[in-house]
Design a protein around this nucleic acid. Structure first.
Lengths: 269, 269
DNA sequence: CGTGTTGTTCCACACAGCGGAACGCTTCAG
DNA sequence: CTGAAGCGTTCCGCTGTGTGGAACAACACG
């Protein structure tokens, strides 16, 4: 890794916090220390700081730490201000009415992507996603369509890294993924059959921000049995439309003849 | 302040983050530095770290920083896991059906309290609260009922400090507040007329956790004109019941004959 | 009763981060 | 048009803060 900007110590604090979003709910000192390659002493001190401000709580019995009220408060504020989510509510509801399946909103975050909102299906057998947890970009429709429309340098970075297998359907071969991404750019949407979650299927389309870069994606997802090619085909236009509407709401203006221009390189160095 | 536990630097990182919940949406380096009494260099470095992890975003034009996608993701996770909120949804909805006013859920956080959730009134003229922002405990019904049932040492700490006036109705006199708090403990609920927000009225009751300490509060609030003594009296039983239900859901067991025991001192030294 | 974990505390040392100062830039007043 | 005052950013030598290995107590397992 090229030395991150900012300070080492500050980074560690955030890294500890973010571990809580990726892993299980409660974490112990040693586990965190191992995970981040830090000494137990350091981790312990950071956790003390976090506890003092209510960002995490210490369960006296189990001696495990979990996210606390301050983080919940911070989160409530962040979600309120986060334009993508604020702007999406109505559109998501519409998409839900059209498909009756679970619809999700995904944001691009450093280190991957995370679901930031969902409306769950009314079906008895349905899918729910884990809000806030980070997932890699190469698995699942929401991830793939982000990856497909990412500025080329960042995309190459990710393609160059190891493509971990979340299920046995996850695309782990670089070349296969490349052609898949080209197809996604052509179609304007992505679909997946069990790539991230074994018994789930999904269709997703990208949302672009003011600067023309991908900001997130919208998806319809559910039990794999219901996601037949026919259903996927029927959903796709709705998903694409919803994503397009969100892009517009975020101030994005179509440059080409209707379809977003793929992979503009990021502006300045 | 007695030197906080944990490390200085780590604390600063969190303090910077939390400024975003208390103040306006976008902040500049100098403003933050002034607010926290730090050098601009330090703040700038911390912000760089936060930007690198997506916790905050930099608006290139205005050179102002605001909360970013990672914080939104972290927040989504924290809110999902935060038992008080998770457990409250149904109860809040019921309370909303009973009163047709805005109902809120408040959590106790270091440095005050913050609204964690709300269901807004269906009336045309209604109140909405600012989720995630920290408010002091001595103003407003949600705050006062937290303060009233806080373990004595912590309560005294707050009473000893300056009682800032958020409106001209805010109780700023220590003795007046003391008798008010006693009344609240007797009644089991608190009410306010414009103490925190000039043209708002509210009724609130405390929620207790497994350990018998206050965790948060539930309130019904709205435009002051509708919060007549009659309406407050009519609401109170519902609010108290809702709060009681939540306490039960959190594992709290009534010790006395129905009413929660006030102000147990905190267990260990 | 040892041997493996935990989480927590201590302390001398080194180096990471601090912060004053300087920079380039924009904005506003005169 | 000039000057002052604000902003965010960068630099660099000194220092004081946080580091991390080791030692500790408290459990858990066999």
């Amino acid at each position: 890794m090229t030395t991150q900007p900012g300070t080492e110590t500050a980074g560690r604090v955030i890294d500890v916090l973010l571990l809580f979003t990726d892993g299980p709910d409660d974490l112990g000192v040693s586990w965190i220390a191992r995970e981040l390659g830090l000494s137990k002493a350091v981790v312990h001190r950071i956790l003390q700081t976090l506890v003092a401000r209510g960002m995490v709580e210490l369960d006296q019995e189990s001696r495990l730490y979990r996210l606390g009220p301050t983080t919940a408060a911070l989160g409530a504020r962040a979600l309120r201000e986060f334009d993508l989510r604020a702007v999406a509510t109505d559109t998501l509801r519409r998409l839900h009415r059209q498909t009756h399946e679970t619809v999700t909103l995904t944001a691009l975050v450093p280190g991957g992507r995370a679901y930031i909102d969902q409306i769950v299906s009314t079906h008895e057998v349905k899918m729910t996603v884990e809000l806030g947890r980070r997932f890699p970009l190469h698995a699942g429709s929401s991830g793939k369509c982000l990856l497909a429309f990412l500025p080329q340098p960042r995309r190459e970075e990710i393609l160059a890294a190891e493509l971990s297998a979340l299920t046995d359907k996850t695309i782990t071969d670089e070349e296969t993924l490349r052609t898949e991404l080209t197809a996604i750019r052509d179609l304007g949407y992505a679909s997946s059959q069990g790539e991230r979650q074994a018994d789930a299927g999904s269709v997703a389309a990208p949302v672009f921000g003011l600067d023309g870069n991908v900001r997130g994606s919208v998806s319809v997802c559910g039990p794999r049995s219901r996601f037949t090619p026919q259903f996927v085909g029927a959903c796709a236009p709705h998903v694409v439309e919803a994503a397009h509407d969100l892009s517009t709401l975020l101030g994005w203006k179509a440059t080409g003849p209707g379809r977003p221009t793929a992979s503009l390189p990021a502006p300045p160095p």
